[in-house]
Write a protein that binds this DNA or RNA. Structure first.
Length: 423
RNA sequence: GGAGGGGUGGCCGAGUGGACGAUGGCGGCGGUCUUGAAAACCGUUGUGCGACGAGCACCGUGGGUUCGAAUCCUACCCCCUCCGCCA
């Protein structure tokens, strides 16, 4: 969420920054509401001051047995006026809030201007695409013929966009999760957490999924719980409404969770295979940092995520999202895209973002500087480290052999009892 | 699910209508004393809004009663104990 005061004082800047996202937002009512709110708060304070003083006086007069009827009836009307003002102020506060809650974050100056993903900027490419002397098959073919992925039965059990992993397939998914968690905890200094996979409305609002994107979420309608679309939600909300002292920052968490997404509006896209599922596994990196450190921390987080692909030896590239492709809460985002031979294209496998204060303000996550002089909102960051299902897809496709088997990357073999090949 | 007991400052804990933003203790910070430290003693020590002044708000959360609410009423949330059920 943006700061009311900042928006009021920098209206032109804010409007221009948001128009780069392709959003035209009308702030005309907003400034009026804000000044009306200020007026109400001021007159409410004045009346309360009077009431407090006179009420004290009434107490004193009563103690000495003097008459107070006159003052009491005066204060009765003052109290009524205070109540009226409070009702109005609450209403305006709510309207201001619901307006601001659906306004996206302001892009960082380094975010390239552009209207959609075609205008994202490639930052670097690593590794080489594998060369095949045969036509590489898509992962769903490979998975079915090796009997490690069962799409039909996944659909039978739950519905479309659900998959059953079997045997070595299930094992490979678990190996990837463990490999990623070990890498980030043992070598990159992240603290492992295993959060709830369902969260309440407040947490969803804190990270920005609500109120605007409710239709993307699976909801338990009788309980007002939501299935998490990413570990970002429960993990960022670990420190909801907390004040963290500067010495403890940065805090880095890594969490494995399944993720649940309705994928509304993606009908017809990626209908085959594991790429787009209602339920998928992800290892997520989340950081809480001092504001002046957040951009260097974003670079480190990105490298931490990339390291997974480097160890696996898979070709990938890093792109920076342009303003039009940027997520709602993000100021700056890098996507890591992995090479998929069957599609001869790069597909997103990680998204690493700096949200600056945007989530911290919504979720009430503050810092206090050493010595207690400065206070403010921390910056939050997160990134996939990585999307596990898509990593499995990348392995099946990039390490497929002519005979239909899959060569297991060396980094994973310790997690597969030394197995070298899936055949 | 049933019965009962609770939620107060960093922590413990007092406070049942006005003198309470809140006694006291612990912890923290500053000082006196000491070669230094400990002990002892003195002082200080919440957050937000605000011209950073005056002032206002905040005692789990939201409503309500009252001239006046941490205190009374009400709904909800959370924690603890016992019973039931359960991995």
């Amino acid at each position: 969420m943006l700061d009311v005061k900042f928006v009021i004082e920098n209206l032109d800047f804010v409007q221009e920054a948001l128009s780069a996202r392709g959003q035209r937002i009308d702030f005309s009512g907003f400034t009026d509401l804000s000044s009306e709110r200020k007026r109400l708060l001021l007159s409410g304070d004045e009346l309360r001051q009077k009431r407090n003083a006179v009420s004290d006086e009434i107490g004193r007069l009563k103690a000495t047995g003097q008459k107070t009827e006159q003052l009491i009836s005066e204060m009765k009307s003052v109290s009524d006026r205070i109540k009226e003002i409070e009702v109005k102020a609450r209403d305006i506060e709510e309207r201001l809030n619901s307006f601001l809650l659906v306004i996206p974050n302001i892009p960082h100056p380094s975010t390239p201007k552009g209207k959609d993903s075609n205008e994202n900027k490639e930052i670097r490419r690593l590794g080489e695409p594998p060369q095949f002397d045969f036509k590489p098959r898509p992962h769903w073919d490979i998975g079915e013929s090796l009997d490690i992925l069962d799409f039909e039965r996944g659909t039978k059990i739950a519905g479309s966009r659900f998959t059953l992993y079997k045997g070595t397939g299930a094992r490979l998914e678990r190996a990837l999760i463990n490999f990623m968690l070990d890498l980030h905890t043992k070598e990159h200094g992240y603290i492992e957490v295993l959060p709830p996979f369902m969260v309440n409305r407040v947490s969803m609002t804190g990270t920005g999924q609500l109120p605007k994107f409710e239709e993307d979420l699976f909801k338990c309608k009788d309980d007002d719980y939501f299935l998490i679309p990413t570990a970002e939600v429960p993990v960022t909300n670990i420190h909801q409404n907390e004040v963290i002292s500067e010495e403890k920052l940065p805090i880095s968490y890594v969490a494995y969770t399944p993720c649940f997404r309705r994928e509304a509006g993606s009908y017809g896209k990626d209908t085959r295979g594991l790429i787009r599922q209602h339920q998928f596994n992800k290892v997520e990196l989340v950081k809480f940092v001092m504001p002046d450190k957040s951009y260097e921390e974003l670079e480190r987080l990105l490298l931490d995520a990339e390291e997974v692909l480097r160890r696996l030896g898979v070709h990938y590239r890093v792109v920076q999202l342009c303003t039009g492709d940027l997520g709602f809460a993000s100021a700056k985002t890098y996507d890591i895209e992995v090479w998929l031979p069957s599609q001869e294209t790069f597909r997103e496998i990680s998204s690493c973002s700096n949200f600056e204060e945007f989530q911290a303000r919504r979720a009430g996550i503050r810092y206090v500087s050493t010595g207690g002089k400065r206070r403010g909102f921390v910056h939050t960051l997160n990134g996939s480290g990585l999307a596990v299902g898509r990593t499995l897809v990348a392995i099946l496709e990039n390490f497929q052999q002519k005979d239909g088997s899959i060569l297991i990357p060396e980094a994973l073999r310790p997690y597969m009892d030394g197995m070298e090949r899936i055949a």
